[in-house]
Amino acid sequence: MLAVSNLEVVYDDVVLVLRGVSLEVPDGKIVGLLGANGAGKTTLLRALSGLLDIHHGAVTRGQITLDGERIDHLDPQQVVARGISQVLEGRRVFGEFSVEENLRVGAHTRPKDRAANLERVYDLFPRLLERRTQAAGYLSGGEQQMLAMGRAMMSSPRYLLLDEPSLGLAPQLVGSIRDLISQINEQGTTVLLVEQNASMALSISDHGYVLETGRVVMDKPAQELLDDSDIQEFYLGLGAEGERSFRDVKHYKRRKRWLS
């Protein structure tokens, strides 16, 4: 199990962004982490992957453990080697590399399993096989998301961390990405799914957390979160004001601040 307890993260020694976050990612599950822009979701994933250093951030309190052993303070490559692989927000494919070169970089820590993992990734994403020699920069947004996920799978991860995979994708593509995530999970990879699209995330998650300005404000089985009236109103766009996505919450807050 991957577990975060009482995690506090500070950027530039002064900006406190995570204020004692605790969450658990039990093996075999999909855990959803929801929250508006700026809540600290990406920061939490950076802490998990050992990326805080390059952003001038640091864990100042609390800990991250993998099967009970502390893994905060590990280098990114040590984290990957322990089976925790992340897909960064915005997909970040290497645009001038071919699809297959992107996948090969993903296999850096597992050169021996490269052939087997390539086959597995191409099975999962046949579109990537069709385009394997094309420059990744020319793929559509949905295909780039598949490539980024496939690349992360090339290290045979136990845990896959996904940072807003639905960001900027058309609704029908969001559906297929969601199905692919649950397929990856069914094949045995545990998933921590960070999303602003709450309905997408909760529809496949076992458990959900809601993060607000660096604190976990809700922590419930996904089904209960779906039924929660606050979530429905603000995060699922089912409230009285009609369609509203998670992304609007920030605008909503900002408006309120200006009015007060």
Binding site: I54, D75, P76, V80, L88, E96, V105, G106, S155
Partner: peptide, 23 residues
């Protein structure tokens, strides 16, 4: 080669290279 590709990846986008486990 694996290292050649890793070097190119590092020069394109350090953070992304890091999350692939490239030192």
């Amino acid at each position: 080669s694996r290292y050649g590709l890793a070097m190119r990846a590092s020069s394109l986008d350090q953070e992304t290279a890091l999350v692939q486990g490239v030192p």
